[in-house]
Design a protein around this nucleic acid. Sequence first.
DNA 1: TAGATTGTTAATCGATTAACAATC
DNA 2: TAGATTGTTAATCGATTAACAATC
Lengths: 214, 214
Amino acid sequence: MTPITTFSIPLIRRLPQYHSFVEGLIREGQLTVSSSAIAAHLNLDAIQVRKDIEHIGVIGRPRIGYDARELVKIIAEFLGWNNLNQLILVGCGGLGSALLGYGGFARRNFEIVAGFDTDPVKVGTTIHGKSVLPLAKLDDLCRRLHIEMGIVAVPADHAQEVVDLMIKAGITGIWNFSPAAVNVPKNVVVQQEDIITSLVILQKNIQKQHEAAL
Amino acid sequence: MTPITTFSIPLIRRLPQYHSFVEGLIREGQLTVSSSAIAAHLNLDAIQVRKDIEHIGVIGRPRIGYDARELVKIIAEFLGWNNLNQLILVGCGGLGSALLGYGGFARRNFEIVAGFDTDPVKVGTTIHGKSVLPLAKLDDLCRRLHIEMGIVAVPADHAQEVVDLMIKAGITGIWNFSPAAVNVPKNVVVQQEDIITSLVILQKNIQKQHEAAL
DNA sequence: TAGATTGTTAATCGATTAACAATC
DNA sequence: TAGATTGTTAATCGATTAACAATC
């Protein structure tokens, strides 16, 4: 009888787009929004938008559309943006630093509480206002704050050892920005981030576009 | 009679993983690889791996598996990694700089030929070896080199104008790292990059994992 | 030969799309 | 009322999974 959270990845990719569009409408003073307005703005099908909204449990009114505030609120709830979500990050190089400084996390209630590094020059400093700590402190910090998620931003050849440390510290979700595949026990989830893949998708879509134009 | 390139996004997300795993095997001296070996390493279903490989046109041998070199070669071909792909980037802030310095592009034959910015302090300098040019030079450079893809790494409120400039310069594929939705003509493709979405997917998967453990 | 592994054909499953009734 | 828009039910489509034959 437990309500199982079902979702598809494509759905989760669309919802944030609905969210920011409707957020904008609210700022402009609009009170309701129709599925077709969302669809037109995002180049999607109105039926799909309606299905997605139905899926997360928002009910609209014929002729009127959906209550904009309610929609935004429930999307945020569904995406977990209404609770603070804390993470830690290991590897404060170029990419790690950029992530420490990324403002978009706070906006959605995500917070990187600290960065970790082995480089004695970096340890003790702050990057974009976040302290850089030695790896030895990882375990204690994660356990005290009950951190669930960790970002791996180290070179490929150190990814596995970092992941092992994180798992020992009780982390169950790993966001891996290194190009290495890592081994984890069954109760741990890995999200492999591969920027090249996005680029390939863009390129394939360009190709398809060209072909369609013939 | 033109061969239409078909592909699904999930397929394109899996292929790079196969590629790097098999690349590793080759380095270790292995000559062939079976679908089940790939599947086991990536926590996938062997049947799915076989289907994917079939889809890109590689033929294996019963009892033996697939020729590792051939597999890697054809995956790379399918993903467009055998030709040099050039891009330009606009917005040399924290994220833009990190992208300019990212080593993974070159490895797959992608090259950011230059960064562009409006800040006179940045213009004329180099970041990670890439020159930072004024926006006025964007049009000329893109046309001369026949650049197809552009990266938008500017704040949301400047995204649309940058996109308009890119389109005028002949760019048909836009990789948008700003959180703004942008309008483009039908022949232009936008790939919206939203780091938060990845994080949400990770978190949802952690939740699912927890539920599954009950 | 026997057994491992691919290739092929069919079944399932879920996401998307379509059709249309309900309703404000 | 008429028309716009949601909600519901059915159809389609494609990806994944399954079953099993082919083959080295």
